[in-house]
Structure formats: structure tokens, C-alpha cells
């Protein structure tokens, strides 16, 4: 039986449901920390400056590649909460087409009460990560359209 790939909106909804089980802030963070710890580490060869996403406090390294018409993201951070948030972004966006990624609203971050992590403060690399993910998707979209 082939596994059906969920749409971006479906995965977002799924995450929102998971978080609805938690009553308190610490349970939410415990879950995020757990996801952070479980995120597959990025191979050290990718942890170079050109893959760094700028944030004042923590570092995120991210790489992406096009497999067929889908974008695959891999990322890691030196801070575990950021890693957990990164893990959710990958879960939502990875393995989708550039067009779907560009159009993704990503309002789940707000709905699970983590909006502050996408705030415009310089201590925050997550917003830059979302921008970089969409930028990469835009580049792949251009590549795909020239091929066709």
C-alpha cells in the first residue's frame, strides 16, 4: 500500500491537533524539545558558513535539494527549541513542490502559540529560515520551469 503524502495544510492541521492536547506551556515546550532531540543530525559536511542561517543567538544550518519535482529540506540548530521548531517546518514543507511551498501560509506556528518565535527580533533565526526555505523553493521553481 503506497503511503499517501499529506498536503501542507493537512500536516499543519495535524500539528495543531497534537498541540491541542497540551494544557500548559511547559508541555508544549517539552514536546518541541523532544522533536528537537529526535531531529536527524545534519551531516557535518553541510555545517559550513554558506548553509548558515543568520540569527543573533543560535545557528541554523539548512540544505535543500530537488528530488523529482519535490523539495527536500534538511536542517539542524545548536539550540534544541529552535531544532524542534525547525523539525516541524521540515515536516510541513519538505517533500512538496516548490509552488506548494511558496504558497504555504504556515499559520500553524501562530495557532500552536509559538508566534513569538517568528517575531522580528534579531535573536531569531527561525523567520530567516522560513524565508530561506521559500527562497530555495523559488529557485527550484525557476529551474523546473526552464526545464519544461
Amino acid at each position: 500500500m503506497s503511503q499517501e503524502v499529506k498536503s501542507i495544510a493537512e500536516t499543519e492541521e495535524e500539528i495543531v491537533e497534537e498541540f491541542s492536547l497540551f494544557d500548559s506551556w511547559d508541555e508544549k515546550y517539552e514536546y518541541i524539545i523532544d522533536m528537537g532531540k529526535k531531529l536527524k543530525p545534519l551531516d557535518d559536511v553541510f555545517k559550513k558558513d554558506e548553509n548558515k542561517i543568520k540569527g543573533c543567538q543560535s545557528t541554523v544550518w539548512m540544505v535543500s535539494e530537488l528530488q523529482g519535482d519535490k523539495v527536500i529540506y534538511k536542517a539542524e540548530s545548536d539550540a534544541v527549541i529552535v531544532k524542534g521548531l525547525v523539525s516541524m517546518l521540515i515536516r510541513v514543507l519538505s517533500n512538496h513542490t516548490p509552488q506548494e511551498i511558496i504558497e504555504a501560509k504556515l499559520d500553524f506556528v501562530d495557532r500552536i502559540g509559538m508566534k513569538q518565535h517568528l517575531a522580528q527580533t534579531r535573536s531569531n533565526g527561525l523567520l530567516s529560515m522560513v524565508k530561506q526555505m521559500k527562497l530555495d523553493a523559488t529557485v527550484y521553481l525557476a529551474q523546473l520551469s526552464t526545464k519544461n
Binding site: 524539545i33 529552535v82 535573536s123
Partner: peptide, 20 residues
């Protein structure tokens, strides 16, 4: 423990410190 993780969890408990 990364200072940023600590800063986030302290903020959630009403404690404002600086990390970095």
C-alpha cells in the same frame, strides 16, 4: 544547554534575562 533555550523557557515563566 544553549543559552537561547534557557532564555525562552525563563521568559515563559515571567523571568526576563539576557542570553547571547
Amino acid at each position: 544547554v544553549h543559552p537561547q533555550d534557557l532564555g525562552i523557557l525563563l521568559d515563559n515563566q515571567g523571568v526576563a534575562v539576557r542570553t547571547g
